[in-house]
Simulated assay, not measured.
Amino acid sequence: MAKTRANLRSIDPVWDRIGQEARDAIADAPSLGAMFHGGLLQHDRFEDALGYRIAMKLESTEMSAQTIRDVADEAYAKDPDLVQAARADLVATMDRDPACHRLMQPLMFFKGYQAVQAYRLSHWLWQDGQADLAYFVQMRVSEVFGVDIHPAAKIGKGLMIDHAHSVVVGETAVVGDNVSMLHSVTLGGTGKQEEKRHPTIGNGVLIGAGAKVLGNITVGHCSRIAAGSVVLHDVPPMKTVAGVPAKIVGEAGCAQPALSMNHILLTED
């Protein structure tokens, strides 16, 4: 078994790179050796380190880190898509966040990345019929990271949440692939009806800091929502909206705004 795991690790360039980054970090700052060994180097696979990190962050007097780790290990073993989504989110953060210089940073230090991976675990539990455990994970994510994502919300791969403070995503929200959002974003409802009451965000959308997208509306793919906007109506694909309430102010400015992270609004003189 040990040989098999070693072989699996040797053909995983992402995990190999993270391991080398950890060894380099220890060489530069030996006082951090225990943290990097415990969080990264003692693990054979990326998903092992991910489960360990989530458990360390979410443990409490009500649930031990080992119990959470066991839940995560079961989820990753039964649903490999969880691990693939975590890898896509990791690469997205590396590519889009200029403050991210190493692949190990989101896994070890970035609460946006960690909160999203904990949400993905809660979503798996929700789909598996373990609603109360899913709610527990949601509660701890909110308490620890200041991010409140309902476990029933559906979120695609390649999500990057920068800074990740006061982010709220409601129960019936749907978020596509390769979306980027900043802090204080709300994907909320406008009433207490039980049916679909939260937004659907298309692929490649960029949502600026403090934006509120409310109600059962659709934000088209590759569009931009300016910081501080309140969006109450559908947004066509590849447009930029801004204001309170938000209105179309121009084109998206590029083919993939979520990847470029360009928030500048160009206006004519």
Rank of each mutant, 00 (worst) to 15 (best):
R23Y: 10
D28N: 11
A29W: 02
M35K: 11
F36H: 00
H37W: 01
D44Y: 14
R45G: 15
A49V: 15
G51F: 14
Y52K: 03
R53M: 09
E62H: 08
T67G: 13
R69N: 07
D73I: 14
Q84Y: 14
A86K: 00
A88V: 08
V91A: 13
T93C: 01
P98I: 09
Q105W: 06
L107S: 04
L107R: 06
Y113H: 14
Y113Q: 10
V116W: 03
R120D: 10
H123Y: 07
L125Y: 00
L125Q: 07
L125M: 07
W126Y: 12
G129K: 08
S142A: 13
K154R: 15
G156M: 08
E171P: 01
A173F: 03
V175E: 04
G176D: 02
D177G: 10
N178F: 10
S180P: 06
S180N: 00
L182S: 02
Q193W: 06
P199Y: 13
T200D: 01
I201D: 05
I201V: 06
I201Q: 00
G204P: 10
K212H: 11
N216L: 05
N216V: 07
V219C: 07
G220W: 05
H221W: 01
S223V: 00
V231T: 00
D234R: 07
D234I: 09
V235L: 14
K239A: 09
T240F: 04
T240Q: 12
A242L: 01
G250M: 15
A252Y: 00
Q256M: 05
A258E: 11
D269A: 15
